[in-house]
Amino acid sequence: MDAICEKIRSEILNISHKSGHGHIPTSFSIVEMLVAVYQTMNHDPKRPNMPDRDLFVLSKGHASLGFYCSLAAHGYFNFEDVYAFGAFDSNFGCHPDRTKVPGAEASTGSLGHGIGLAVGMALGARIGNSGKKRQVYTLIGDGESNEGSVWEAIMVATNLKLDNFTVLYDNNNSQGRCLPIPNPAERFAAFGCQAIEVDGHDLAAVKRALTVSTDRPRVVVCNTVKGYGCKTLSDNVYEWHRRAPKPDELNMLLGELHAGNV
């Protein structure tokens, strides 16, 4: 595991423990995806409103803790700032508020919304612009993709041939229990996207996928494991879906993380 990803996961555990909040397994599954985006996109953490920046929208807003820790790891603020996660009057809620979190381009939480917003942002970057366009990235979940609005947005994006629009699909099989989406790469390709399937925990592979040239919307299907990094989490995703670790559990999970016991 890359050092930055291990650091982010350890802070997710620490902050969840301190705050009593957090969807840890789903935050763990997207860490490499987030790091890949922030190591690829044009952004400046010291100028989060830089006019020509690329944009990232976390559509699966319940993974906010992973998002905040990734922003902190890339210099938007300190990890300590996030210790008030979910607390009254905190800037860091259990779902992101764009007006409170530097680097958050959209307030999300109800599933199936961020992707449509991101399509609008990508379209806006194209209007009146024949030159280099800003890139717009959004991260959606497989559970979120039960929502019809996800597929509406994909249809619109492909019809508009938005070549500056990238979806990172967290294929962590969270809907295996309910309404699974088999062969997602085939589905996105059938909708007209450039679909690339990678190991979502291989940071280099995700970054390579984000830079493959395309003339259409790009979907990077990232095969991931909920709770990746701690075997206790990945073996017990339902129990840990929304739960904060107690002191002894924190030490156990940090031990697993640092031992590389994924």
């Binding site: 449509g116 399509v119 609008g120 379209l123 806006g124 194209r126 209007i127």
Partner: peptide
């Protein structure tokens, strides 16, 4: 032509995309 979109019969996405455009100053 670049500021006109007959986007489809997808009302949820009309609003979301419109909001995304609004976020970019349109």
């Amino acid at each position: 032509p670049d500021r006109f979109y007959n986007m489809g019969i997808c009302e949820n996405t009309l609003i979301s995309v419109g909001a995304g455009l609004g976020s970019q100053g349109y």
